[in-house]
């Protein structure tokens, strides 16, 4: 677990649909800028290498985790940790909506989106298989857990990370904006509500990075944010604007929260497991 202040960069990115090479160039520019700004991590949104509304394009742009396309990220990760989103073709040739975390010259984690949305405007199950693994991994920010977009709307997944000892949660997203009746897009509140709850009750920093730009009329809102272990939104990016943002995280705040608020100490995971294993109450 790391203490003290660390700077992270949020790339509220606008991908070029279906063009990995151009997206890699754009990524590299952002990564270099983030290094100049002293960031130790740069987070790109879900499917940042490809864009979202791929449909049959997934077959053309899926790459394996050992693809040469990822070499540059490994190299750059000697200077900064990097999280990107991409379409992964696994060893068994099955396609996943995945993220890759690079650090100190290596690809150290692949996470595969677990809760694929498949209703209304979403059709991810048509093109992707759902991931089945959830394992936090060590980074300079602590024990880090990744969630991709709709995963973040399942408190059970964030809780599973909490159980497994994660204390730093990154959620990357491609959330289409919707709901224009209120002050802000009504979709935004959903993400922030989740972020505030997880960061407070699981004593974590939560970093949520959403993309911008339009694809076939779907607008992606941006509104990336960071929430802290007091349940406060400490940074929020504007809607619809593509930019690189740096945020300073005072990690001692988290360490203190874990000691003083003691949610982690007082949670009884064995008891919760027992509750679940007892089965449902049929009455």
């Amino acid at each position: 677990m790391g203490s003290g202040s660390k700077i992270i960069a949020i790339s509220q990115y606008k991908p070029i649909l279906g063009d990995i090479e151009k997206n890699i160039d754009k990524h590299i520019k952002s990564i270099k800028k983030a290094i100049e700004k002293g960031a130790e991590l740069i987070v790109f949104p879900e499917l940042s290498l490809t864009g979202y509304l791929l449909r049959d394009l997934v077959y053309d742009i899926a790459i394996s985790k050992s693809s040469n396309f990822l070499d540059e990220f490994k190299l750059l990760s000697k200077k900064i940790d990097i999280l990107i989103g991409f379409v992964e073709k696994a060893e068994d040739k099955v396609i996943y909506n995945s993220s890759a975390y690079f650090s100190r010259g290596n690809l150290i984690d692949i996470y595969r989106k677990i809760r694929l949305p498949n209703f209304g405007m979403f059709e991810e199950k048509r093109f992707f298989k759902a991931g089945e693994q959830l394992k936090p991994f060590k980074t300079r920010f602590g024990k880090t857990g990744i969630l991709i977009c709709r995963d973040f709307l399942f408190p059970s997944l964030a809780y599973s990370y909490f159980y497994k000892g994660a204390d730093f949660l990154i959620s990357i997203s491609n959330s289409p904006l919707r709901g224009v009746e209120g002050e802000e897009y009504s979709s935004q509140k959903m993400w922030e509500d989740a972020g505030k709850v997880y960061s407070r009750f699981f004593s974590m920093f939560v970093v949520y990075v959403n993309r911008v730009g339009f694809e076939d009329g779907f607008g992606f809102a941006g509104g990336s944010f960071v929430s802290d272990p007091d349940g406060q939104i400490i940074f929020r990016a504007p809607f619809l604007e593509e930019d690189l943002y740096v945020v300073e995280l005072d990690l001692s705040k988290r360490d203190k929260a874990r000691t003083v608020y003691a949610y982690y100490r007082d949670e009884d995971f064995e008891q919760i497991k027992r509750f679940i294993n007892e089965g449902r109450d049929e009455d």
């Binding site: 904006l177 224009v180 009746e181 209120g182 002050e183 802000e184 897009y185 730009g213 339009f214 009329g217 607008g219 809607f239 619809l240």
Partner: peptide, 23 residues
Amino acid sequence: MKINSKLVEKTLVEFLKDEIKKF
């Protein structure tokens, strides 16, 4: 049914910019 016209304007302006430039 009421809309936040300011938010709608911003969204549609960005949509037109983005979509027309892209093509």
